[in-house]
Measured scan of single mutants.
Amino acid sequence: MLEGKVKWFNSEKGFGFIEVEGQDDVFVHFSAIQGEGFKTLEEGQAVSFEIVEGNRGPQAANVTKEA
């Protein structure tokens, strides 16, 4: 699992990017966010995740919000 911070997330469109120190930003789709209820992320929020190869390159999977 990697750790990063949410760079930005558009809850209307359901996607955004996660910043990872020393690496390129990683695309995140709302469907990759773990948990119940409305799936969104806040700018600057700490998250842990895995990287998988998507249709358009690397993207986040199994995203969990850090306490």
Rank of each mutant, 00 (worst) to 15 (best):
44 G>A: 06
2 L>C: 04
54 G>K: 09
31 S>N: 08
48 S>V: 13
56 R>Y: 15
67 A>L: 11
18 I>K: 00
14 G>D: 01
23 Q>I: 12
43 E>N: 13
30 F>W: 14
1 M>S: 09
63 V>N: 01
50 E>A: 10
22 G>S: 08
28 V>W: 02
50 E>H: 09
17 F>G: 02
31 S>W: 09
21 E>W: 14
40 T>A: 10
11 S>E: 11
1 M>A: 11
65 K>M: 12
41 L>W: 02
41 L>P: 02
50 E>G: 08
31 S>M: 09
17 F>A: 04
66 E>Y: 15
63 V>A: 03
57 G>P: 05
50 E>F: 12
31 S>E: 06
67 A>V: 12
46 A>G: 10
10 N>C: 06
37 G>V: 06
49 F>L: 07
45 Q>V: 10
52 V>R: 10
59 Q>I: 11
39 K>M: 08
25 D>P: 09
22 G>C: 05
54 G>P: 03
41 L>N: 01
13 K>V: 09
6 V>K: 00
16 G>W: 02
24 D>E: 12
43 E>S: 15
8 W>M: 05
38 F>T: 08
46 A>C: 05
21 E>Q: 14
38 F>Y: 13
30 F>R: 14
61 A>T: 12
48 S>W: 13
30 F>K: 09
46 A>V: 13
51 I>P: 04
55 N>A: 14
28 V>M: 04
40 T>I: 10
6 V>H: 00
67 A>K: 14
7 K>M: 03
49 F>P: 00
4 G>Y: 01
22 G>M: 07
11 S>W: 11
7 K>E: 02
45 Q>K: 06
11 S>Y: 14
6 V>D: 00
26 V>N: 01
52 V>D: 06
42 E>V: 15
20 V>T: 08
57 G>W: 05
10 N>Y: 07
29 H>M: 05
55 N>Q: 13
43 E>T: 14
47 V>A: 03
63 V>S: 01
67 A>F: 12
66 E>H: 15
23 Q>W: 12
39 K>H: 07
50 E>W: 10
30 F>D: 03
53 E>V: 10
7 K>V: 06
49 F>W: 02
38 F>W: 13
7 K>G: 05
21 E>D: 14
61 A>L: 08
1 M>N: 11
35 G>A: 10
28 V>T: 04
18 I>H: 00
42 E>S: 10
43 E>P: 15
45 Q>R: 07
21 E>P: 14
41 L>V: 06
54 G>D: 08
52 V>A: 09
50 E>S: 08
28 V>E: 00
38 F>D: 09
37 G>H: 06
42 E>Q: 13
16 G>T: 00
25 D>L: 07
8 W>K: 04
27 F>E: 02
65 K>H: 09
20 V>K: 07
55 N>D: 14
62 N>R: 11
21 E>C: 06
26 V>L: 09
52 V>Y: 11
27 F>Y: 08
13 K>G: 05
57 G>N: 05
34 Q>H: 10
45 Q>P: 01
65 K>S: 10
14 G>I: 01
16 G>F: 01
32 A>E: 09
10 N>T: 07
29 H>D: 03
48 S>E: 09
48 S>D: 05
36 E>S: 10
9 F>H: 01
16 G>D: 00
17 F>S: 03
67 A>P: 13
66 E>W: 13
3 E>D: 12
12 E>I: 10
26 V>C: 04
60 A>F: 01
55 N>P: 14
22 G>F: 10
5 K>E: 05
17 F>T: 03
38 F>Q: 08
14 G>S: 02
5 K>N: 05
66 E>M: 15
1 M>T: 13
64 T>H: 14
66 E>I: 15
39 K>R: 14
33 I>V: 09
60 A>H: 01
58 P>G: 06
51 I>F: 06
8 W>T: 03
50 E>L: 09
12 E>D: 13
1 M>E: 08
6 V>E: 00
24 D>I: 11
34 Q>A: 11
65 K>R: 12
16 G>N: 00
48 S>R: 13
28 V>R: 00
32 A>L: 03
17 F>D: 00
59 Q>A: 10
61 A>I: 11
53 E>L: 13
67 A>C: 06
43 E>L: 14
35 G>I: 09
20 V>M: 12
57 G>Y: 05
15 F>E: 03
42 E>Y: 14
4 G>P: 01
13 K>M: 11
13 K>Q: 08
57 G>K: 06
60 A>W: 01
47 V>I: 08
42 E>G: 11
27 F>M: 03
46 A>H: 15
46 A>W: 15
44 G>S: 06
41 L>E: 01
47 V>P: 00
27 F>A: 02
9 F>M: 03
55 N>H: 12
61 A>R: 09
5 K>F: 06
42 E>D: 12
2 L>F: 13
8 W>Y: 09
67 A>W: 11
52 V>P: 02
40 T>R: 11
31 S>F: 06
19 E>L: 14
22 G>K: 08
22 G>W: 07
16 G>I: 01
37 G>I: 05
64 T>E: 08
13 K>F: 08
28 V>P: 00
49 F>V: 03
32 A>R: 04
35 G>F: 08
34 Q>D: 12
67 A>S: 12
57 G>H: 05
2 L>M: 12
26 V>I: 11
2 L>T: 12
9 F>L: 03
38 F>V: 08
51 I>Q: 06
48 S>N: 15
53 E>H: 11
66 E>R: 15
13 K>Y: 09
14 G>W: 02
51 I>W: 06
17 F>M: 07
2 L>V: 12
46 A>I: 12
49 F>S: 00
58 P>S: 08
23 Q>T: 10
14 G>R: 04
56 R>D: 09
58 P>R: 12
34 Q>C: 05
40 T>F: 12
35 G>S: 09
25 D>G: 04
47 V>S: 01
46 A>L: 13
50 E>R: 04
10 N>L: 07
46 A>E: 08
48 S>C: 05
65 K>D: 05
47 V>Q: 00
47 V>R: 00
53 E>W: 14
12 E>Q: 15
29 H>N: 04
24 D>C: 05
29 H>K: 03
35 G>W: 07
47 V>C: 04
50 E>T: 12
50 E>K: 08
52 V>E: 08
64 T>S: 12
21 E>L: 13
60 A>P: 01
1 M>Q: 13
26 V>K: 03
65 K>F: 12
4 G>F: 01
55 N>W: 14
59 Q>F: 08
53 E>I: 14
61 A>Y: 09
1 M>I: 13
31 S>L: 08
67 A>E: 10
8 W>C: 04
6 V>S: 02
62 N>E: 05
35 G>L: 07
17 F>Y: 09
51 I>V: 13
25 D>N: 09
64 T>K: 15
8 W>V: 04
56 R>H: 14
41 L>M: 07
51 I>S: 04
50 E>P: 01
28 V>L: 06
1 M>H: 11
11 S>I: 13
37 G>K: 07
25 D>Y: 06
8 W>P: 00
19 E>T: 15
16 G>R: 00
14 G>A: 03
45 Q>L: 09
4 G>C: 02
47 V>W: 00
33 I>H: 01
40 T>C: 06
27 F>T: 02
